[in-house]
């Protein structure tokens, strides 16, 4: 049982990490959800005991025959926290999607660089002479290769 649980935790965690290092923001969110869920799974694995429903009055009279309720409460709390943070993350990427029409983190960075340059050019006209030589342009060039 311990081996099964640790394998499950490892696979879920590993898949999560793989997704987090992707460029697509939606995948990153899914990845972090998987990582969080692997923690919940770990909690369950760490405190798993088989027994009766832990509701007073206990069937056996003492606590020995009941399963440990604290682990379940902890896993539940962790799940709630994950779900609310996921909602927040989704709204953040939605916000980015609306303004950039893409969910690719690198496209967003490039777009931001370009905006920053445009702003700087407006403030400091002397850069205007050579508009091709901004970092964004270079970045684009490099990526088109």
């Amino acid at each position: 049982m311990i081996l099964a649980f640790s394998l499950a935790v490892a696979v879920v965690f590993g898949s999560g990490v793989f997704l987090v290092i992707q460029r697509d923001l939606l995948r990153v969110v899914v990845g972090i959800v998987l990582i969080s869920n692997s923690a919940s799974l770990f909690i369950v694995a760490a405190g798993l005991t088989r027994g009766a429903v832990p509701i007073v009055p206990l069937p056996g009279g003492d606590g020995a025959s009941a399963s440990d309720p604290l682990v379940q409460a902890m896993a539940l709390t962790a799940l709630i926290i994950t779900s609310s943070v996921t909602a927040l993350l989704l709204s953040l990427i939605y916000r980015l999607y609306v303004s950039h029409d893409t969910m690719d983190i690198e496209d967003i960075s490039v777009a931001e660089l370009r905006e920053a340059e445009a702003l700087e050019r407006k403030n400091r006209p002397e850069i205007e002479e050579n508009p091709e030589k901004g970092p964004a342009a270079e970045e684009l060039e490099e990526r088109s290769r």
Partner: peptide, 29 residues
Amino acid sequence: DYQVRAAFIFAIVNLFGSVVFLIAAASLY
């Protein structure tokens, strides 16, 4: 935009930290 992006990075990194801590807490238990 850059603030939203910063918040996203911040959230991802910190969530990762929280998960590591949660695992440690469960192990302590």
